[in-house]
Write a protein that binds this DNA or RNA. Structure first.
Length: 944
RNA sequence: GCCCGGGUGGUGGAAAGGCAGACACGGCCGCCUUAAAAGCGGCUGCCGAGAGGCGUGCGGGUUCGAGUCCCGCCCCGGGCACCA
């Protein structure tokens, strides 16, 4: 028998009073109130205008509060108790906010495109839409059972045709825009066309615009679009049959999903020009109320570095390097290209130059052989080997010398795998004196080392990368690093050797996937092979029915394969006749679909105005809920709660789309999420037997400090809740055995919302006892009648009541739900010891309602009120009750507490001092105190 | 290696520089009960019979007073990592 069966049985068989707050009683109350809320639309939030406006709503025109959770992907497993932690947190917080007067918007939706439904479809033939919709319904039912106060009119799933219609519409806005670096914002592509037409902008080859063919013009324009097709190296994953974004590839070169090998291949794919927004995505982080950790991760991912591009002349043309330390150029004693660098083949000479150091040639007869051998060696090395810390620097001389433009020094050119093809220009000037990696390389290959920054006195390291005066650097000597940088950059620009530059680690976002279950692109191709946008009035482009949902899959290790999309096999859909303005013509549809991130890039906007059929969102509604509140405020959702795992991917993409829509004037906020909060995770113990097999966690007993399964010792481990570890506990089981309110209170009282913690079913009973005591304060368990009396409570209880009110309010504002609940328990425990006075019980019920809403509604009724508790004013503390009548001062002698004295709250400092000294007289042993410190209201400290 | 978090009873966790361990789980004792469960009440950081002493990862420091602030370490978790 499982824990839950035992618990359910003992309850059923127990001889309990007829009106006790049991799980069965809770279940009945909870269902009844969930129905009431639905029928009355209790949690509908009024918009200022449009179909969702409601001037008669109790919060119409009130200050607004927009709180959102990261919506879930509805998996086939349903929710476990870890999932709703954040949801219960935001639900409790928003229920509180509603009671203190806010017009609260708190919606919920589903991120429903994605791989699992598609993979299930491939295996079983079930349409992913069917699986997805069933899973969404299951999630909805589970969340409803927990009493979530969502505005259900605003719910959405990214797979709804009416939703992805607008996802496609946004794609078209991005496609039809370009980034104007002069105005530092996106502008309509038509403005760019106009510039070319007027001759304000020159074409790449300087020909006049009117002399270009239509196709040539389109190619020029397409090259500026924020969404564009490019033939570029992408991450091709044969095992998944699709390409992946950089963010979806792990550092060891495998797919984040499925852990298949990923290969760099040049393929034609859709890209989003997120790099154009690099500066703004970086700088605007400063104005966001986000965890520093997440900001740091985004900064790191964007990876902006400023420096210079510098040309180092060679016989075959200049080598362009990027450096963040142009000030050290006098110390550049060699140059390095990435092994794959395109210039290498052009540079390599027939013969080694005379007198070459044999160490540099790798023992090869000619430079060409040395290069080929090194390339083969580098390609065979895994990434892990390549970057392993202990690895000695490798490389090979390619037989040519470049010229250092500042002093005409002849410097050898190497290829080495410590220079990456994908960053900067794929080439560096090596300055061993100031760069640790270059120093190591220089030691291996016996290259000269010249310091150009004076290290501080006593510096005994090798490369010195800190600040200091320049040395050995001609006209830079004596300048500090920053000044030397500025000086050398203007010198380089003046002499045409280089220019100041900024590079980013951030790459453009690979936006197409070779999958079925995603948004189709609103794009067709004409006879020129160039993309043509589907007009907005022809949206949505619906996902067609197909027989085979899978892309073509390959041997995961076979890099030499080509993607084939599921939609491409549907030729009657791919080849289409459309009238796009110049009469019916034949077109070929785009057969890629959008990545799963697309739908979650803008859902915060659609919640605002889900029924708007003429626009994505009405800007008046957007301005009310998300607009900037003060000068310099970026606007956005007031509180966005979710896991830290989305720190880079989702949050960076969503910010990017939001900024494009802002630039184009569709919305008033420049950031989607003003405040971000990362909730912790609930994990659980799992158990393995002697053979290493997982046993069901709920069947394990703990005794004598050990764990046993059917009497056999097992070993405890800790991890994510999941089928694999056989340690899943579901909210449905919790509702069954304890009721939703108990479950909610338990999750909120376990600890602070942002801390991860282990699940402990057996501890849930503490929350149930709390709610049962609260219930008993109001309801006679034998008769079901109210026990509450109208007499005032005693003075001490009254002071506690107001202290609790003040404390709970503060805790709620700070999302400190665990301490708020502790205070409510304290008040409840006090209230059970005195007469059940309405003066105490009503505010107690109100304060408990954000956490245990069904129970609170029920008790509010029993206290004689009508309607819902949802919009009743939250209790306000009586300030006069917050000052105690008397204060107990601990008295310290030399830092140790030796006595306590109770004095009237208004006692003077002298009186407190006198009382304290008298109380510790014996501890002083007749010695005269050297110093007596009285901290008003706190304590007395005596020093002898 | 670098950048963030975090180390408090048997457990989850509380503590504007001011009584360390609120609240809860578990444990022990008691009431109720033929009995058990539920419920209710009491005790529960460690050492000590007690008086008392010791206690917030370790070592220093500032302070009348440090879990909290400063310096140097150790351990755990997360992120990044040859990014020029």
């Amino acid at each position: 028998m499982t824990f839950f069966e035992v618990a359910a049985m003992s309850e059923a068989e127990a001889d309990i009073p007829p009106f006790r707050y049991t799980a069965a009683m809770a279940g009945e109350i909870e269902t009844r109130w969930q129905n009431y809320w639905d029928e009355h639309g209790t949690f509908h939030a009024p918009n200022p205008s449009g179909p969702l406006s409601d001037p008669d709503h109790p919060r119409a025109g009130a200050p607004k509060l927009y709180v959102m959770d990261m919506f879930p992907y509805p998996s086939g497993q349903g929710l476990h108790v870890g999932h709703p932690l954040g949801y219960i947190g935001t639900d409790s917080y928003t229920r509180y906010a509603r009671m203190v007067g806010y017009n609260v918007l708190h919606p919920m939706g589903f991120d429903a495109f994605g791989l699992p439904a598609e993979q299930y479809a491939v295996q079983t033939g079930t349409h992913p839409r069917k699986t997805t919709e069933e899973n969404v319904e299951r999630y909805r039912a589970q969340l409803r059972r927990l009493g979530m106060a969502y505005d259900n009119r605003r719910t959405l799933a990214t797979t709804d045709v009416e939703y992805y219609r607008w996802t496609q519409w946004i794609f078209l806005q991005i496609f039809n825009s370009w980034y104007d670096p002069e105005h530092k914002r996106a502008r309509p592509i038509s403005a760019l066309v106009l510039e070319y037409e007027k001759g304000d902008r020159v074409t790449p080859d300087n020909r006049a615009w009117e002399d270009l063919t239509d196709v040539e013009r389109r190619e020029i324009i397409d090259a500026h679009r924020l969404a564009y097709v490019s033939e570029a190296p992408v991450n091709w994953c044969p095992g998944l049959g699709t390409v992946l974004a950089n963010e979806e590839v792990t550092p060891d070169g495998r797919s984040e999903r499925g852990n298949y090998p990923v290969f760099k291949r040049s393929l034609k794919q859709w890209m989003m020009r997120i790099t154009a927004y690099g500066d703004r995505l970086l700088e605007d982080l400063d104005g966001l109320d986000w965890p520093d950790k997440v900001k740091a991760m985004q900064r790191n991912w964007i990876g902006r570095s400023t420096g210079a591009h510098i040309g180092f002349p060679t016989a075959a043309g200049p080598i362009h390097v990027f450096t963040t330390r142009p000030d050290t150029i006098f110390g550049a004693t060699y140059a390095v290209l990435a092994p794959e660098h395109a210039l290498v083949d052009e540079l390599v000479p027939e013969q080694w130059p005379a007198g070459v150091n044999p160490l540099w040639t790798g023992g090869h007869a000619t430079p060409a052989e040395a290069v080929a051998a090194y390339r083969a060696e580098a390609a065979a090395r895994t990434d892990a080997e390549r970057t392993s810390e202990s690895k000695e620097k490798t490389g090979v001389f390619i037989g040519v010398y470049a010229t250092n433009p500042v002093n005409d020094a002849r410097i050898p050119v190497f290829i080495a795998d410590y220079v990456l093809a994908g960053y900067g220009t794929g080439a560096i000037m090596a300055v061993p004196g100031q760069d640790e990696r270059d120093w190591e390389f220089a030691e291996v290959f016996e290259l000269p080392i010249i310091r150009t920054v004076q290290p501080p006195e006593g510096f005994d390291g090798k490369a010195y990368s800190g600040d200091g005066p320049a040395i050995n650097s001609a006209f830079l000597d004596g300048l500090n690093v920053d000044d030397a940088k500025a000086e050398i950059i203007s010198w380089l620009e003046e002499h045409n050797y280089g220019y100041g530059a900024t590079t980013y680690r951030l790459r453009d976002w690979l936006f197409s996937r070779q999958r079925y279950w995603g948004e189709p692109f609103p794009i067709v191709y004409d006879e020129s092979g160039l993309p043509v946008a589907i007009p907005e009035d022809m949206l949505p482009v619906e996902l067609p029915e197909v027989d085979d949902f899978s892309p073509r899959l390959f041997d995961p290790d076979d890099a030499d394969t080509e993607p084939e999309t599921p939609l491409s096999r549907k030729s009657d859909w791919v080849n289409v006749t459309l009238d796009l303005g110049d009469g019916p013509k034949q077109y070929r549809r785009e057969t890629n679909t959008m990545p799963q991130w697309a739908g979650s890039c803008w859902y915060e906007l659609r919640y605002l105005d889900p029924r708007d059929e003429s626009s994505m969102v009405d800007i008046d509604n957007e301005r009310y809920w998300m607009g900037p509140q003060t000068e310099g405020d970026p606007g956005g959702v007031d509180l966005y709660v979710g896991g830290v795992e989305h720190a880079v991917l989702h949050l960076l993409y969503a910010r990017f789309w939001h900024k494009v829509l802002y630039d184009l004037g569709y919305i008033s906020s420049s950031e989607p999420f003003r405040k971000l909060f990362n909730q912790g995770y609930i994990q659980a113990y799992a158990y393995r037997d002697g053979r290493g097999l997982i046993v069901p966690a709920e069947e394990v007993e703990e005794r004598d400090g050990g764990f046993f399964h059917n009497g056999v010792p097992v070993f405890q481990e800790y991890g994510k809740m999941g089928k694999g570890l056989k340690n899943v506990v579901t909210p449905d089981e919790m509702c069954e055995v304890y009721g939703a309110d108990t479950f909610r209170v338990y999750e909120m009282s376990m600890g602070p919302l942002d801390v991860s913690r282990p699940w402990a079913t057996r501890a849930v009973v503490g929350s149930q006892r709390f709610l049962q005591r609260l219930w008993r304060l109001v309801v006679d368990e034998q008769t079901g009648e109210s026990r509450v009396v109208d007499e005032e409570t005693d003075a001490e209880t009254r002071r506690l009541l107001h202290r609790v009110i003040a404390g709970v309010r503060g805790d709620m504002e700070d999302l400190h739900f665990n301490t708020a609940i502790a205070k409510l328990i304290e008040l409840t425990n006090r209230a059970t010891q005195v007469a059940p006075s309405r003066e105490v019980i009503e505010p107690l019920v109100l304060m408990t309602s954000p956490f245990a809403p069904h129970l609170a509604e029920e008790l509010w009724r029993k206290l004689g009120h009508e309607g819902s508790i949802a919009y009743v004013d939250f209790p306000t503390p009586d300030e006069s009750q917050l000052v105690a009548e008397s204060v107990t001062y601990p008295v310290q002698v030399n830092g140790k507490v030796r006595a306590r004295v109770e004095v009237p709250a208004d006692a003077s400092e002298e009186d407190v001092r006198a009382a304290a000294l008298e109380a510790v007289a014996s501890s002083l042993g007749g010695k005269e105190p050297r110093k007596v410190i009285v901290v008003a209201g706190r304590m007395v400290s005596v020093v002898v």
